[in-house]
Nucleic acid binder design. Structure first.
Lengths: 345, 345
DNA sequence: TCAACGTGGACATAAAACGTCCCATATGAT
DNA sequence: ATCATATGGGACGTTTTATGTCCACGTTGA
């Protein structure tokens, strides 16, 4: 059974979307006994016209009885709902989760791949693949795309492709060097993405965290200044999310600073900033890359991160509230959902 | 698993059609090793443009590899075909059958509902329902529709509906009275259909088989003559198919005639005529209703019949070669397929 | 080298989906 | 009995998508 669904996902990705839509309509009609088109459209958050197309179809299948008084479910419709119940969770559990998380954080889109990146590398790859689709869909001609580092972003970079060379696009690192391994550097990832898609890329050869003096003098350099300006005007930002302490350690942040951040409740790290559980930024620092105020004005901010252990961190960054799209995996999503659940009580 | 397929067939029949299309493309590509768009389109009997849309999609799913040299299937594509195999028959077995029968008899359309009308009344009703859809789709304003009698046609009549009254349509019996029970008379069925759809109807109160003298004198009657002329110009004919001997007995055909027909190999009966296995008409008779030459010129001829026992008869009438659409059930279709198979050897 | 066959781009046009408004009508409260 | 309200369905202009048709250009194999 499960394998059939997997096949259909590949061969007809929107099959499940349509199926869910029709299922939800049918269910809503059943719960409402008798209901009119307009109020049904409102309660399902659909426009009247597309709902109408669907109800017309359901009527033609005799799953819905629809007359001048309104519509109600037929016997065959009830039977179908019953028979479908056992499949529902397997088929649409993730969609439900997506919708829940999307709504709670006010995101434009949430994509969840099944599995746990912590446990299985395959899930990590899936995550990368999903990130690619999202990115591809959001990219337009002449876009500048800023990307951060990290293993997840590296997965995205290694799977990104494009049918035709995207000569007009420009990939840039969101931040300067952060003392990570070369493969996971933002610079590396930006260049990989550009090479794989036939796009342009520019590097930012500057350490990320800078003292005021160094910052000022670097920004005097015309070539640094120019690329920094390009970065700060990126239309799309793609970033990973990490655990604050893990990242701090990996980046050899000063022990005293680490302690300070810990004291302030630092939980998550993303595009060089550290966030506490409420999405507040802990420890603002001068940077040559994207600053918070740039992020806030970026048109499309895409977060990509997965693994059960990252659930909390992801939730923290989402609470920061300037992301538009979240791509994650099932394990992390379940953690996030649990956090939402807990605090809504 | 099987029940999921049943659900999907109700909830998204149109998407399953797409799924099959993509599967067949993928399979054809695999069988061809490497093939170009045009020749593939030809072998699948699709236009080049729609095939292209599909192959573009399959490429985006990475199921197909497509470069300047042509296209071939990817590893993922092969895997998908393998995994899909066990589901294929359950999902599209009937579509395959439909296509096979359609091609063999050169029909415009074949519709098969699952089950065996001989065994289950529910299948009979399904058959009627399917007949309704076909008829509805083929009907246009101002059409005259001639219908025959029989229990299957009665099923159609009892389920035919129309959203809006079809005031411009006219239902007429294809033939005169044939000595069957009232419910199954063509007259009854025509009037039922008309009443249920808000259409017009006309009756033909004349015995079907007539001697030459009676025929001539009846045709002198202006009102008989008029309706007969209308019948003979029907744009659509809907007819059932029966076993020759069963029908002959039910209609109390003269024993000597029955013997004669038997000797000539009469196998099937339809719209008052008897056919042998080759679709040749046995025993032409004068009739006030539709004659063979009328049928041959009718724009849309729809045959509706099911049940394993009728498979042979249906095949015989199809061989007659003037039907456009066949609506039948699985059991009959399997019989028909077996007959096709047997003689193609 | 050349001919045949391949893909992919381009574009006009047909067809479908969609948003929006309106109307006759059924329903239920008054 | 009547009236306000909500209903389905028709209509229609607009936008989006699908489709037919050509053509440019690259690859391949003779």
């Amino acid at each position: 059974m499960h394998s059939l669904i997997a096949i259909q996902q590949q061969l007809l990705p929107d099959l499940l979307v349509v199926m869910r839509k029709r299922y939800l309509i049918l269910r809503q009609v059943m719960l409402s006994d008798m209901i009119g088109r307009r109020s049904l459209a409102a309660s399902l958050e659909m426009t009247e016209r597309v709902l109408r197309a669907e109800t017309d179809f359901l009527k033609s299948q005799e799953l819905l009885i629809i007359d001048a008084a309104g519509m109600r479910i037929s016997e065959a419709g009830k039977r179908l709902l019953d028979e479908m119940e056992p499949f529902y969770k397997a088929m649409f559990g993730l969609s439900e989760l997506e919708e829940k998380i999307r709504k709670h954080f006010g995101l434009k889109q949430v994509v969840i791949v099944s599995g746990d990146s912590d446990e299985s590398p395959a899930t990590g790859r899936e995550l990368g693949r999903a990130g690619c689709s999202v990115l591809r869909k959001d990219m337009k001609a002449n876009d500048v795309i800023a990307v951060t580092g990290g293993s997840t972003l590296a997965q995205v970079a290694n799977q990104l492709t494009s049918q035709t060379p995207l000569r007009s696009n420009l990939f840039v690192p969101a931040r300067g060097g952060l003392g990570e391994s070369l493969d996971y550097q933002a610079n590396t990832i930006a260049s990989t993405m550009a090479k794989r898609t036939g796009a342009q890329y520019r590097m930012l050869h500057v350490p990320d965290h800078l003292g005021e003096e160094a910052y000022n003098s670097l920004m005097q350099e015309p070539n640094v200044r120019e690329i920094v300006e390009v970065i700060r005007e990126a239309r799309i930002v793609v970033h990973g999310i990490g655990d604050a302490m893990v990242m701090a350690r990996r980046r050899r942040v000063d022990a005293a600073v680490v302690e300070a951040m810990k004291a302030e409740g630092a939980l998550a790290e993303s595009f060089g900033y550290y966030f506490d559980r409420h999405g507040e930024v802990v420890h603002k620092m001068l940077t040559a890359g994207l600053r918070l105020e740039d992020i806030m004005e970026t048109e499309v901010v895409i977060a990509i991160a997965g693994g059960r252990s990252k659930g909390e961190a992801i939730a923290a960054v989402m609470r920061f509230g300037h992301d538009d799209v979240l791509v994650t995996d099932e394990a992390a999503a379940l953690e996030i959902a649990a956090i939402i659940e807990k605090e809504s009580q």
